[in-house]
Simulated assay, not measured.
Amino acid sequence: MITSHVQQVVERLLVRGVTGLPEVLQRRLGRPVVRDAQTLADDVRLMLALQRLAREPAVETLPIVEGRRALARQTAMIAGDDQVAEVRDLRVAGLPARLYVPSARRGPGAHPTLLFLHGGGFVYGDLDSHDAPCRLLASEAGVRVLAVDYRLAPEHPFPAAHDDAWAAYRWLLEHADEVGADTARLAVGGDSAGGNLAAATALAAAREGLPLALQLLVYPGTDALRDTESLRLFGEGFYLTQGFIDLAADAYYPHLSQDERRDPRLSPAYADLGEVADRLAPVFLCTAGFDPLRDEGEAYARRLEEAGVAVEVRRFEDQIHGFLNMTGAGRTPRAAVVEIAHRLEAGLA
């Protein structure tokens, strides 16, 4: 146990040391990675190189329980430790949840609040895996962040995660006073699978005519059919792999046919926007340049915009899938998350 802990400390120091080197030195360590007219950030390139040197197993190659432990260890290695005024564990619609209260908004009354849904392919992730980005979003945006730990596959296949996300949003509306939330300034957001759940929740809220001020979609999965050039370009070597995507599909929706995968609760890209566009919350959607999910996220943004929804799209060209969790390693991933937090703040002002 002690040896394992010491090893984790050493690995974390190594990652932070190398990715924190001056940019001029980072550029000398290896060759730049250029693909699709984009250049990978040097600190991210070195992070991936260290992962390969350490022979860190990809989580999708491990049994799911072991993969969950490996992912928890990997995210802890690159997590930041931003401070907030209060962190409170609670239950939301029967689910484990965690409320982050920023120092800038400690007073009484109702405050802008983000309902956050973590990524992990519907199979991995929890409150701890995304503790660091939730802290940074809360502290930088000055908003309350309510993170919810929905049920995971394969133990709970589709539509369990979607149903939990929707139940959590309804709970927040009904219990806003308990968490100090202003129902006129609510956002729903998440990364990857969490972005998928956030988008589907926003669609459901629009259909029901319920209040929502902003969708914060960070490299979201939007199309379960997944026939994109970005998947072909970046499906290997950039953290999120084709193998991980296939495992997530086999775990979360193995029973669905190709046509059934167009269900908007799973693939927001196929939602009938005509009936909800005028009630759909404005969207801030960001993608990563070296991400297999890049094209489907940007395609969804274009479809929303064509339907008349207010949309802002930001591609972080030099980043990979998962940069939201890299708040404690390197400079460029953290800077991207800070930018996202400022856009969240503006969207709920």
Rank of each mutant, 00 (worst) to 15 (best):
A168M: 03
A168Q: 12
A168E: 12
Y169S: 06
Y169K: 08
R170Y: 00
R170G: 05
W171H: 06
W171K: 07
W171F: 01
L172W: 10
L172I: 04
E174L: 11
H175K: 04
H175C: 03
D177E: 15
E178A: 15
V179L: 08
G180E: 13
G180L: 15
G180I: 15
D182P: 10
D182T: 15
T183M: 07
A184S: 14
R185E: 00
L186H: 04
L186N: 02
A187E: 01
A187N: 08
V188C: 11
G189M: 01
G190M: 03
G190A: 08
S192P: 15
S192A: 14
A193R: 11
G194C: 09
G195H: 07
N196E: 09
N196D: 10
L197D: 04
L197C: 03
L197P: 08
L197M: 04
A198G: 02
A199F: 05
A200V: 04
T201P: 01
A202I: 06
A202C: 09
L203A: 13
A204D: 12
A204W: 10
A204M: 14
A204K: 14
A205Q: 06
A205S: 08
A206K: 02
R207Q: 11
R207L: 03
G209L: 05
L210W: 13
P211Y: 10
A213Y: 08
A213K: 15
A213W: 13
L216Q: 13
L216S: 01
V218M: 04
V218T: 04
Y219G: 02
G221F: 14
T222V: 14
D223V: 06
A224C: 07
L225G: 12
L225P: 06
T228D: 07
T228F: 14
E229A: 15
E229Q: 14
S230F: 03
R232E: 05
R232M: 03
E236G: 00
G237N: 10
G237M: 11
F238H: 07
